[in-house]
Amino acid sequence: MSRWTRKPREGRARWVLEPLLGVGPLRFGMDPEQVRAALGGARVSPSRTSGGRLSWQRYADVGVTAIYGHGRGHVRGPRLVAVAVDPWCGPLVRLGDVELIARVPSEVRADILDLARSAGVSVRSNWSGDPEVAAWGLSMGAAQERGTPPEEWTRTDRVITDALLVGPELAEDPYATAPVIGWYDVREARPNPGTSPLPPRERTHWAWTPPAGVGPLRFGMSVNQVSAALGGEAPAIRRGWNLWAGRGAGPWYLREEQFDAAGVTAHYWSPEGPPTLAAVTVDGRTGPQVDWDGIRLIGRSVSEVDAEVIRRIEERGLEWTVHCDGGPGPEELNMYVRATRAGDAVVSGARFFAPDWEDRGR
């Protein structure tokens, strides 16, 4: 979910979830004007359309995103089918006696399991490893906790819960439907395994050589060269995109390959011709250890690594910047610290990239 301005708990609204009917003042089936009126005329920023039809609207002041489907038959126009609640500034939603938002995920899971047992409904795990209850139209999630103003970009070492709340037509598989995919496509997300990171002694060590590459990987390598450099490992996941041409999908372009055994993701670009390696993300849970100027970057407390990296950058007279996913790094060296979820916590990873590569933060 998006990084909005953080609100203290005492300044947040308190809503009640009425399963499959609505949450707080919102009711599934409302049109966009009814949603806005129910939210007291809150400002919309931003919104998204797909195929000329409204897909979702974000209400930053309230901390929710309204997701719309489009009715058939006598029901015309967009209708509210789902509500995503932000963990940092959204309303504190309650289901029965269970508070769902901005809490420790494992604690919320335990409370949901207790409530589900008493109600006689089943609980499953969703794409992120968090609880999902079709009978309640509830799919939990989590995001990294942030610092308080004025240093909201700072990151903590824990995650807090958010939620996707849906109407009856989406309850069986909320994240697999077109309205929700248009807001957040989990096919592009890495599942949370909920396991602890590898200890240092079980990690290989890679050298970082800016701006050439990291470990055995060098920017500019072909797809086959990347696999060969990783000992012939085949990627567990390949992601890409289609170039749309005319009325249909055009050629498919490879964007990244995920190598689970090595604990890295290779990112490609293809400005002219076949794709070549442009960036490498080292996973905080399972990736190799990489050092920079005496700092171990991988598999540690994110807040500690952030602080050490910033201090070293300033000591060396370099400039530092916060990248699109919230991690700091030396602007001149094309690296920044990333965070990998591991259950209720996060551990540090890193991304290394070639000059002029456009980083989209995924």
Rank of each mutant, 00 (worst) to 15 (best):
R3F: 09
R6Y: 08
R9C: 01
R14V: 00
V16D: 15
L21W: 00
G24C: 11
G24E: 10
P32M: 11
Q34C: 04
G40Y: 13
G40L: 14
A42P: 08
R43W: 08
R43I: 08
T49R: 15
G52I: 09
G52A: 05
R53Y: 06
R53A: 12
S55I: 03
Q57E: 15
Y68V: 03
Y68F: 08
H70S: 02
R72G: 01
H74I: 14
H74Y: 13
G77F: 12
L80H: 03
L80F: 10
C89H: 08
P91H: 03
L95D: 02
E99W: 06
L113N: 09
L115M: 07
A116F: 08
R117I: 04
A119T: 14
G120W: 14
S122Q: 02
R124L: 08
W127C: 00
D130P: 00
M140L: 14
A142R: 02
A142W: 12
A143L: 14
R146W: 13
T148E: 15
P149S: 12
P150I: 15
P150N: 01
R158F: 09
A171W: 13
E172H: 07
D173H: 03
D173Q: 02
P174S: 01
A178Q: 15
G182C: 12
V186D: 00
A189L: 15
R190H: 05
P193R: 02
P200H: 12
R201V: 03
E202A: 13
H205Y: 10
A207K: 13
A212R: 07
A212K: 06
L217W: 08
G220M: 14
V223R: 12
S227D: 11
S227Q: 09
G231Y: 07
A234M: 09
I237N: 05
G240F: 14
G240L: 10
L243W: 07
R247V: 04
G250T: 09
L254M: 03
L254E: 09
A262I: 04
A262W: 12
G263K: 04
V264G: 05
P271T: 00
G273D: 11
G273C: 05
A278H: 11
P288F: 04
W292S: 03
D293V: 15
D293N: 08
I298Q: 09
I298V: 15
V302D: 12
V305C: 00
V309T: 10
R312G: 02
I313D: 00
W320S: 01
C324D: 09
D325R: 04
G329I: 04
G329D: 11
P330I: 13
P330H: 09
E332I: 03
L333V: 08
N334D: 12
R338G: 06
T340N: 10
G343L: 10
V347K: 04
V347L: 10
F352P: 03
D356M: 14
E358P: 03
G361S: 10
